[in-house]
Design a protein around this nucleic acid. Sequence first.
RNA 1: GGGGUCGUAGUUCAGUUGGUGAGAACGCUGGCCUGUCACGCCAGAGGUCGCGAGUUCGAGUCUCGUCGGCCCCGCCA
Length: 593
Amino acid sequence: MGELRRTHDCYSITEESLESEVTLMGWVHRRRDHGGLIFVDLRDRAGITQVVFAPEVNKEAHEKAHSLRSEYVIAVRGKVRRRPEGMENPKIKTGMVEVACEELRILNTSKTPPFPLDEEKDVSENVRLKYRYIDLRRPVMLENLRLRHNVCQAMRTFLSQKGFFEIETPMLTRSTPEGARDYLVPSRVNPGKFYALPQSPQLYKQILMIAGMEKYFQIVRCFRDEDLRADRQPEFTQLDMEMSFVKEDDIIELIESLMAFIFKQTLNVDVSIPFKRLTYKEAMERFGTDRPDMRFGLELVDITDIAARCGLKVFNAVASSGGVVKAINAKEMADLSRKDLDVLTEFAQSLGAKGLAWVKIKEDGSWQSPIAKFFKDEEQRAIMERLDAAPGDILFFGADQKATVFKVLGELRIELAKRRGLIPEDRFDFVWITEFPLLEFDEDEGRFKALHHPFTAPMKEDIELLDSDPGSVRSRAYDLVLNGIEIGGGSIRIHQQGVQKKVFKVLNIPDEEAEEKFGFLLEALTYGAPPHGGIAFGLDRLVMLMAGRDTIRDVIAFPKTQKAQCLMARAPAEVSMAQLAELYLRPDWKKAE
RNA sequence: GGGGUCGUAGUUCAGUUGGUGAGAACGCUGGCCUGUCACGCCAGAGGUCGCGAGUUCGAGUCUCGUCGGCCCCGCCA
């Protein structure tokens, strides 16, 4: 760089800098070589500034500029001047001015990048991930990471101001039963023993409450060795929080202010608080899911009672065997073609439905449907009234066990909304889901498992049901859902050893195992554990939604592929025998047949 | 573990029922060009059609296997 020192970035060169000498450093975004006159769009993290190389300003710099290529790293010293009349570029912020180069230094050359980074053009993700350092230079990716930084910054500002301590918890911890598969780390000094990377700092943050920290948060990496999705990575980041002496509403209100603060600070968006609230039961009944997208209607309506007395045997059978019949009124969608309906039927079947019954409402209010003949006039009227059906509407029916109907109609609801463009893109619709079941029955294992985690407190009024009817016990858990995606979840925790032991018992975790795995928590609960509760947010998902992206990979600097590999660093990788031996690991592994 | 989809030049893609030397755009290289900003004009280079078998007189195209990207189900307290 010689004696050159950077004085400005490529965003701050404006008319205020006219006539002053500046030094810029950055990458050659594009070169337009006119022979006698050369233009270079110089790009840095902040923006783009046009640099002009003219022989009358500096002959040497002009000559050297012929050799510039895309992504060369250069330093440019020169004077800021107004562009000639009519030559302004209104598309960029610095478009009124340019820098006339008096000295050019090539700080580094570059091979031709493997893909263009100037446009929004879609490049396959494997190439982008292999050359992630180039991908991240693209302004859109840079902005995603900038937003992520700003969101973290807002979280820290807000929580510090509210009296929270940011406290780190261990990355090398112990494997716990329940929950996701752990990533294991062998211990060299303890042959045959393994650490686990944390799935969340759950136990540590509860211990911190018992330790009297009162208000804790951490922006922390978590690990789960499960298959990937667009919104799931094996390592992800969460905003983890815990507070003592609180109830549900304390946490909910705090989080609403936090979200409002984050959105205002980073996007200048006003989100309206308080957020809507739905109980788990209501969410399932009306939307078929515990993470409903509230940006559109198409709600599920129960018609089991009418279905029970109609002439359609499939409906009767479902109604009399404990199942449900529900319907969606797709307003003004009766123009769906036979082919559309076939596709939707296949869609429903792929989710476990046996079929997909539909009814088109004709101009005169009569039914056009393969199942019309099984319904008396009175039954048709009753259904139409309940669904608020009018000519031009089409009704879809789901009849099966509850879980299937919820899933099928819940997904159908989203599919219909997508097809018809009913989902407003620019809205942020939050909703709290409360009163989750504490437990759910695992058919495979033949026992109850915790829906959230085994430290979630049951609702007081349901505690005695723990013995008689565990499946109906509601918990003091709450999830925050944004635009149909779960972005956070938490609960009031159990702070009494007796209750915790009882829950372990219902979960069929033997005393010895509870003692072995969670003994330190059970013991800590006996030394003055305050009532406490908390919540954790998926930072990646939140930023993804705020950035309007479809995958969290776009807001993570170095994400992994669906095979859980890093294409750039090529991880995971084989290790030497010596390394394995040092860890007392046998290298003769084989994939189980 | 399962279903779907994709893989052809550096990139994004086209390539018909299997049939002449595998194409386009952008990018790249060289030349010309003093007001461009997706600069323009001229010329040129660039391919293991992901990989491996098979069918066939003949395979980018068909079959099987395999590797990889993406989407989904299962899984994800």
